[in-house]
Design a protein around this nucleic acid. Structure first.
Length: 194
DNA sequence: TACGTGATCACG
DNA sequence: GTGATCACGTAA
């Protein structure tokens, strides 16, 4: 069951980031189906300095200003494609970065894309999981209600006590906003990034 | 710890 | 136009 647009269009991006832990990210790229359980996310809000949309709309971040339920994919450090889901209402540029997955199916396809012999750490990081799932900048702005990339309910609900909140990674430039505990991880998961 | 890598953004 | 910067990953 795909998450509905009303899930994404709520105003509290921190809560949405928390609720996405345990849900399942699915891609169907080049007729190849892959999916994994989300075990690590980060919330970004246009109201704080860590967010690409903090200073307003640019050509890069413009899809963040659309109504929630679309993807935001951008190139980081010239190498890595990072995948976010846009949340909140049109004009309120919030998003959740998906940082790590536990592979669920299509593992052979993921290994082939990663040129990896084993599943070890194959999706434990925001740049790695996009490569394993075949996500790239051509998927920027697509509707998560369509049939190429979407998120489904997980098999079981994750209890809040099993979700850890810590500061976000790699945003020292954000000053005191870098201290906000807006990174969420599944407690005890071996698939969380390093 | 160091650095590859290239789009993007804020200058002029 | 140009230069600094960057929501990472790997090797060492």
């Amino acid at each position: 069951m795909k998450l509905s647009s009303s899930f994404y269009q709520r105003q509290n991006v921190v809560q949405i980031a928390q609720e996405l832990i345990g849900k399942v990210l699915v891609t169907n790229v080049n007729e190849r189906l892959t999916c994994g359980i989300i075990v690590e996310t980060e919330a970004y809000s246009f109201k704080e300095r860590g967010c690409h949309a903090y200073k307003g709309m640019t050509t890069r971040n413009q899809v963040m200003f659309e109504a929630g339920g679309v993807s935001y994919v951008y190139l980081c450090y010239g190498i890595h494609h990072l995948f976010n889901v846009v949340t909140n209402r049109e004009g309120k540029a919030d998003a959740v970065l998906i940082r790590a997955l536990e592979p669920l199916s299509g593992q052979g396809i993921m290994q082939e894309r990663m040129k990896a012999k084993t599943l070890h750490k194959i999706t434990s990081g925001p740049g790695k999981l996009t490569k394993a799932l075949g996500i790239n900048r051509s998927h920027n702005g697509i509707d998560l209600g369509d049939d190429e990339i979407w998120i489904e309910e997980g098999k079981t609900q994750v209890a809040k006590k099993n979700i850890l909140a810590t500061p976000r990674i790699g945003i020292d430039y954000a000053g005191e906003d870098a201290l906000l505990p807006w990174r969420f991880t599944l407690k005890g998961s071996e698939w969380v990034s390093k």
